[in-house]
C-alpha cells in the first residue's frame, strides 16, 4: 500500500508544481527583464479563473471557458501595464511592491463588488468526472492528470521557444543582461510587453485549470502569489529553468510534508504531540526549504547573473 500512496502523493506534488510553474514562469521573466516585482500577477490568475467560471456557467462549454481565460488575463495584464507597471520600470523594488499591492487591493475588492463575496460555481463537465485506477486500489482524478499534462506540454513549448528560437534567445539574453541587449538595439520595453502578455496568459490559463479544483472567490490569487514568489526566489530570479525546478521542489515539499510529516513524527513523539507539531511543521515546510536554499545558495538554485558574469 505504501508505495502506491507514495506514487499518488508524488503525482500530487507534481500537479501542484505544474500549476505553480504556470504562474511563476511569467513572474520570473518579468522580474528578469525589467527588474520589476509584479505582485499583481496573482490577480491575473484570479481573473483567469473568474473569466473561465463565468463563461463555463453561461455557455456550458469548457473548451470555450479555457480558451477565454488566457485572453482575458492577457488583456488585464496589458491594461495593468498601461495604467501602473510602465511607470514603475525605473523605480526601486519597494515602490513596485507598494503600487502593485495597491492594485491587488483594488482588483480583489472590485471583483467582490461585481461578482459578490461568495464563490462562483465552476463544476467539471461529466466527461472529466472519472478517475484513473492505479494498481493497489488508489485512484487519480482525470482533471488533475489534465493539469499535469497540459502544464508539462506548455512548459515544454516554453522551453522550446526560449532555447530553440531567436526570439527566445533574445528573451533569455534580456533576462540575463537587459542593459547589454538594449545597447545592441533591442527594444526592451516591447520585449517586456510581449513577455508580460505571455506570462499573464499563462497565469490566466492556470487560473482556468485550477478553478474546478479550488474555490473561485475574491482573493484566491493571494496565496498563489506568495507560493510563486517562494518558487522563483528558491529557483533563482529571472530563470525559467529555476522556476521549473523551484515549482517542483515547492510542490513536492508541500505535498509530501502534508502527507507524511505527522506520521513520521508519530514514530518519535507521543501521538498528541505529533498531531500538534506535525501540521505546524508541514505548513512551514516550503518556507523552510526556501530559507535553507537561500542560506546555502543566496542567489537561488539557478543563478543567471552570476553565470553571466
Amino acid at each position: 500500500m505504501e508505495p502506491t500512496l507514495l506514487v499518488v502523493q508524488f503525482l500530487n506534488g507534481i500537479q501542484l508544481g505544474t500549476l505553480l510553474f504556470l504562474v511563476a514562469s511569467g513572474l520570473t521573466l518579468v522580474f528578469g527583464i525589467l527588474d520589476v516585482i509584479n505582485l499583481a500577477h496573482g490577480v491575473v490568475y484570479m481573473v483567469g479563473a473568474y473569466a473561465a467560471a463565468s463563461t463555463f456557467v453561461r455557455s456550458g462549454s469548457l473548451a470555450l471557458a479555457i480558451a477565454i481565460a488566457p485572453v482575458a488575463a492577457l488583456l488585464v495584464g496589458l491594461l495593468l501595464d498601461r495604467l501602473v507597471l510602465r511607470f514603475l520600470y525605473d523605480r526601486n523594488h519597494l515602490d513596485q511592491v507598494l503600487a502593485t499591492f495597491g492594485v491587488i487591493l483594488f482588483v480583489d475588492e472590485a471583483v467582490r463588488a461585481i461578482f459578490g463575496p461568495a464563490a462562483l460555481p465552476y463544476p467539471l463537465p461529466p466527461a472529466f468526472e472519472w478517475s484513473l485506477e492505479l494498481p493497489g486500489g488508489a485512484t487519480y482524478p482525470a482533471w488533475r492528470l489534465v493539469i499535469i499534462v497540459s502544464g508539462l506540454v506548455l512548459a515544454a513549448i516554453l522551453f522550446g521557444i526560449l532555447h530553440r528560437t531567436r526570439a527566445g534567445m533574445v528573451v533569455r539574453a534580456a533576462a540575463t543582461d537587459p542593459g547589454m541587449l538594449a545597447m545592441l538595439g533591442v527594444d526592451i520595453r516591447r520585449l517586456f510587453l510581449v513577455v508580460l502578455g505571455a506570462g499573464s496568459a499563462l497565469a490566466g490559463f492556470a487560473g482556468a485549470l485550477a478553478g474546478p479544483i479550488v474555490a473561485v472567490q475574491p482573493g484566491m490569487g493571494d496565496s498563489v502569489l506568495i507560493l510563486s514568489f517562494v518558487v522563483i526566489v528558491t529557483g533563482g530570479l529571472g530563470s525559467v529553468q529555476g522556476a521549473l525546478l523551484g515549482s517542483f521542489l515547492v510542490g513536492l515539499a508541500d505535498t509530501l510534508g502534508r502527507s507524511f510529516l505527522t506520521d513520521l513524527l508519530r514514530l518519535l513523539l507521543p501521538p498528541a504531540a505529533a498531531n500538534e507539531v506535525g501540521p505546524a511543521l508541514a505548513s512551514m515546510a516550503i518556507y523552510l526549504v526556501m530559507a535553507i536554499v537561500l542560506l546555502i545558495r543566496p542567489q537561488g538554485l539557478v543563478s543567471l547573473r552570476r553565470a553571466a558574469r
Partner: peptide, 30 residues
C-alpha cells in the same frame, strides 16, 4: 544573522519566510 547572508529581493523573501514560520508556529500554540 541568517537573513543578512542574502541581499535585495532575496532578503525580502527570507524575512518573509521566517515571519511565516513564526506565524504558523503561533497558530499551532493551542
Amino acid at each position: 544573522a541568517l537573513s543578512l547572508r542574502t541581499r535585495g529581493v532575496h532578503f525580502i523573501m527570507i524575512t518573509l519566510a521566517f515571519a511565516q514560520m513564526l506565524y504558523f508556529a503561533a497558530n499551532s500554540l493551542s
